[in-house]
């Protein structure tokens, strides 16, 4: 009588959980040398599959990730500035649309009075400071350069961080 051997799936299921194996399967394994050899083959394979190859045991991700998150949070902090900028444009557009261009222009013209006061104050200050040989135009230019350098440095600082984390 021809012997029906166990299928690969039955052998694997038996190996995965001997206690849940069907009595027929368990009885066959006990007596069949060919299926025992198959089982032995799978046993060796299972053992080898548990072996950890060069899969990354030496990888230390913590420092690089923490650095990355720091940069990301700095970038996220910049977002409201951009949002504020866009919000300002949208707000201006909405005002022009709702109030009307003519009214807005008239209001701006009315502000001229205040501007003339401002210029008066500036010229008064200039008069007092002229005794100190200071040039207000030059001073304004210096302040403008410092502000621009701060903004550039802010972006360069972020790029530098990205470069450092890239080369790490």
């Amino acid at each position: 009588m021809a012997v029906t051997h166990l299928s690969d799936q039955e052998i694997q299921e038996y190996f995965d959980n001997k206690r849940a194996a069907l009595p027929r399967v368990a009885a066959h394994i006990e007596t069949c040398q060919q299926c025992q050899a198959q089982l032995q083959g799978y046993q060796e394979l299972y053992f080898a599959l548990r072996y950890e190859p060069e899969l990354s045991t030496r990888l230390d991700l913590a420092d690089a990730i923490m650095e990355n998150l720091k940069i990301n949070s700095e970038e996220a902090f910049n977002l409201p500035i951009w949002l504020a900028f866009f919000g300002m444009i949208i707000g201006l557009a909405a005002t022009l649309y709702l109030v009307g261009v003519e009214k807005v222009v008239n209001s701006l013209m009315a502000l001229q009075t205040y501007f003339s006061i401002d210029w008066h104050v500036v010229s008064t200050i200039n008069k007092y400071l002229s005794g100190l040989h200071l040039n207000l135009g030059l001073l304004a230019m210096a302040v403008f350069i410092i502000v621009m350098m701060s903004i550039i440095d802010h972006f360069v600082f972020q790029s530098r961080h990205k470069l450092i984390s890239f080369f790490k």
Partner: peptide, 15 residues
């Protein structure tokens, strides 16, 4: 958390 799960993540990614 990274230290606890970096092995799992790297197993998946490396494979």
């Amino acid at each position: 958390l990274i230290l606890a799960y970096q092995r799992l993540v790297s197993h998946i990614v490396f494979r």
